[in-house]
C-alpha cells in the first residue's frame, strides 16, 4: 500500500467582498477539491470566509530572505516617491 503523503497546500481566504484573499495557513489533501473542502472545515468554522484559494505549496516561488536587502534597497533611496517629500505652500488646499 502506498505510504506516499498527501501533498501540502497553502490556503488563502477572502474574508468578505471587497477584500483580498489572504494567506491563512496550510493543510494536506490528496487533490484540489478536497483541499478546498478541508480548508473550509479547518479555516472557516466561524464564517471567516466567503471564498477560498488553494495552491500547491511546491508551486509557490518565494524571494530569498537573505537577499532582501539587495532586493528591496532600490525603493529605500527614492523618498521623492512619497507625497510628503514635496513642500506645499501655505494656503494651498485640495492637494
Amino acid at each position: 500500500m502506498s505510504q506516499q503523503e498527501w501533498p501540502l497546500w497553502e490556503v488563502f481566504i477572502r474574508s468578505k467582498k471587497g477584500l483580498n484573499h489572504k494567506h491563512v495557513g496550510s493543510l494536506r489533501a490528496p487533490d484540489a477539491q478536497l483541499a478546498v473542502e478541508n480548508a473550509r472545515d479547518v479555516y472557516t468554522r466561524r464564517s471567516e470566509g466567503i471564498s477560498i484559494w488553494v495552491v500547491l505549496s511546491n508551486d509557490i516561488v518565494a524571494s530569498d530572505p537573505s537577499e532582501s536587502p539587495e532586493l528591496f534597497e532600490p525603493a529605500d533611496d527614492k523618498v521623492y516617491r512619497h507625497p510628503t517629500f514635496y513642500d506645499v505652500p501655505d494656503g494651498i488646499s485640495h492637494m
Partner: peptide, 11 residues
C-alpha cells in the same frame, strides 16, 4: 491508512 492511499490513487 487505506483511506489515505485510496484518496491518493483516486486523485
Amino acid at each position: 491508512l487505506w483511506v489515505r492511499a485510496a484518496a491518493m490513487a483516486h486523485a
